[in-house]
Design a protein around this nucleic acid. Structure first.
Lengths: 231, 231
DNA sequence: CGTGAGGTTGATCGCTTTCAACGGAGGTGG
DNA sequence: CCACCTCCGTTGAAAGCGATCAACCTCACG
């Protein structure tokens, strides 16, 4: 039993177990298709729905008054968006590429949770898993240097896309360098430089700028945890 | 209705509403007293309990293999510790000064949640509120400079200790500069320098090194949000 | 072929860290 | 009672890392 939080992805697994409310609330559930960069909801919008990503990748972000942006998380298929909001959403949510999401009315969900305790429990489990991965991400933001951040990020994507056991993994980076930078607390230039550095070290390869091939996953793991990757 | 998450404290309020399980689970609930720096639980311990802080301040932190430390949150009275863990705790928890906590068996709590939907819902609300404040803290860690971090931190403490409406607020800093640094992603020296800077700017005063008096709360709010405090 | 967005690379700057010394408060023992 | 020690906080000087500014490259698209 492994939960898939929307927030961050230090927790690798993606379970395709159907959500428990699928059977119960199918009538208040409906799917929508999003174009690239289409906005699902804005900071301040009434938070009426919780969303499950069906296909594609969603990006949750906030913007400071002076324009600085912070990407809170990327949400992959099977993950939930919209937990942790009360009356109104506290961040923006948009599609990174084309995407599909399933919306569930929050009111209906809460009503059902009163009768079916396992729904409430399931929501709590999701929220817990999300908390866990956010704690991991806080550590990254507060205490890791640039190359450790990149290594951690790529490692998490490798696990998410290719499973935990894969020795060499190839996957896409659907998001821009700017998205990555705003997620890791870095600038695009620093992201680019350190990806290049990892490539020059032989840890990864970049067939295209949006395709990553992990060559040495153990080394990547070492770097992510801060094993002196100088030279 | 305001929740009090244990994690971070960008959400100011502390409600002293009794937890809903107090009436139901009083038998599996008991209080313990902690000396200064006494450890409540360790990273890896079996996560059998959820704790409510009754008195004092608790500190949740993690340690990287190479010794770097990251403080996830400080928990004040009325707040919960131990949400977001599955089988085992994923961080250390210790008392900042002397403290008292009330422990609730997680198993008993989960069992009761199956029968009383409002308990499950309440836990979910707590977890949601915690998520919200962690998102705020992520923004701080990823995108704010040192003085903005300090201003945000002191502002949050002022609200927590003195209420939202107080014009000038005085409060204690029970934690060390090292704790603050590890919470904000800074070194002790940078913490010290920027507290001094705020003092020299006339925004705060420091009767003792562990007592803060906020002189100009609007200026502090401005700095916390990044209104160019260079001048 | 021109255009524009996204990505890379180089040079320089500045903020935070690092290293180091000092000061004050509290506790202990002579 | 005072010397001494340790822990915590402050301050200074220097170094380093990531940010900033700027140029160039690449690719998709009209």
């Amino acid at each position: 039993m492994h939960m898939s939080p929307a927030i961050s992805f230090q927790t690798p697994a993606v379970s395709n177990v159907p959500m428990p409310w699928n059977n119960i609330e199918s009538k208040s559930c409906h799917e929508q298709k999003l174009r690239s960069h289409e906005v699902l909801f804005c900071d301040g919008d009434e938070a009426g729905f919780i969303y499950e990503v069906v296909e594609g990748v969603m990006c949750n972000y906030r913007i400071l008054p002076d324009g600085r942006r912070h990407v809170i998380s990327f949400a992959y298929p099977g993950e939930l968006i919209g937990l942790g909001h009360s009356e109104s959403y506290r961040f923006y949510c948009e599609a990174v590429g084309e995407a599909r999401v399933r919306s569930v009315s929050k009111a209906a969900l809460m009503r059902d949770a009163q009768e079916h305790a396992d729904i409430g429990r399931c929501l709590f489990e999701f929220a817990s898993a999300e908390l866990a991965s956010m704690q991991e991400h806080q550590l990254l933001l507060g205490r890791k240097c640039a190359i450790e951040k990149l290594a951690s990020f790529l490692l998490a994507l490798a696990h998410r896309n290719c499973g935990d056991e894969a020795q060499s993994a190839q996957f896409q980076l659907p998001m821009t360098r700017s998205d990555i930078g705003d997620f890791l607390g870095l600038t695009i230039e620093t992201v680019s430089r350190n990806i290049t550095k990892l490539k020059n070290m032989g840890v990864i390869d970049l067939p295209q700028s949006s395709t990553v091939l992990v060559r040495d996953i153990e080394r990547l793991e070492g770097l992510a945890e801060g094993e002196d990757g100088a030279f």
